[in-house]
């Protein structure tokens, strides 16, 4: 009793809209396996009946349960490694010099999904900042579901295995039943907000570093330009933007310049002066 094509398309559409995750054809069994417990929980006799009901009478709670059941996360901790190394070894020492008065750094993890990136940044800053410094990290995502999950700060065993060094696991997480929960000392420096990067952004204090990785690849050139312009307005004059390895501002937005940072590249606004000599920003 496999899912009908119509039911599968309905679920795939819902998950794509709500969580920007694509369920390719061939995943019918997976969808069914994940939805069997959900159907049971809401008292439907079968997945087919459950999906028929919800298509006839949309129910936000049930829709959320479907999205939740199907969006297990594949994101790694310290994904791609190099940006985090470049931060620790090159950019943070510069920023620490430039912010000696305020002793505070603000980071933005744009399109943070279930939270691995902002929490990886929190671990990086926790380890790299001198005593007496503060940091704030904002994680944003278009999906309410992902924001909810990131806010909870709980990760499954499989998620925890992905690229997180064991020493940091025992240091910055605690066991919570089948899951691992991020330590309160990190959690309190990270906040989350639902945000559409292609729409005008709400007012926020400017950021020292923005991570916007593997997001632009999903947009057409005009949208890329809009997003980069929006982000540029949020960046301090001597702040840094990290993109995914396959992404660039070149040919899209001339206001940025690419700077080699360690074994990767970072971007900054062209009017920028080196962080070490920056005026109070």
């Amino acid at each position: 009793m496999t899912l009908s094509q119509q039911d599968f398309s309905f679920v795939a559409g819902l998950v794509r809209r709500e969580a920007s995750i694509v369920l390719a054809p061939g995943k019918e069994y997976l969808v069914e396996a994940r939805l069997i417990p959900v159907a049971r929980q809401v008292g439907a006799a079968s997945v087919t009946e459950f999906l028929a009901n919800i298509q006839r009478r949309p129910d936000p709670t049930h829709q959320r349960m479907i999205v939740d059941a199907l969006t297990t996360n594949e994101t790694s901790w310290f994904r791609d490694r190099e940006p985090f190394t470049a931060l620790t070894e090159q950019l943070l020492p510069e920023l620490i010099g430039a912010r000696a008065t305020s002793r505070k750094l603000r980071f933005w993890s744009a399109a943070c999904s279930s939270g691995q990136e902002p929490y990886s940044l929190a671990i990086t800053l926790q380890q790299a900042l001198p005593a007496g410094w503060n940091y704030e990290i904002v994680g944003s995502d278009i999906s309410t579901e992902m924001i909810k999950r990131a806010e909870a700060g709980e990760f499954s065993q499989v998620e925890i295995n992905r690229g997180l060094p064991a020493a940091q696991l025992v240091h910055y997480f605690e066991r919570a039943g089948a899951h691992w929960r991020i330590a309160p000392s990190l959690r309190r420096n990270v906040s989350f907000t639902r945000l559409n990067l292609t729409a005008p952004l709400p007012p926020m204090p400017p950021f020292d570093v923005v991570f916007l990785r593997n997001v632009l690849i999903y947009f057409d050139v005009d949208t890329k330009r809009t997003v980069l312009r929006n982000i540029g307005r949020m960046l301090r004059p001597d702040g840094w933007l990290f993109l995914g390895a396959a992404e660039t501002t070149i040919g899209i937005d001339d206001n940025y310049e690419r700077v080699v940072a360690g074994r990767t590249s970072a971007y900054r606004l062209k009017s920028a002066v080196p962080a070490g000599t920056a005026r109070k920003g």
Partner: peptide
């Protein structure tokens, strides 16, 4: 958590929890 701490203290460099995917092990 206490077991992971014990293993690291004894001299293990890393710790992978079963079940793991091939990708996670390579990472």
């Amino acid at each position: 958590q206490s077991q992971i701490v014990r293993a690291l203290a004894a001299g293990a460099h890393e710790y992978v929890i079963k079940p793991f995917t091939a990708g996670a092990m390579i990472e």
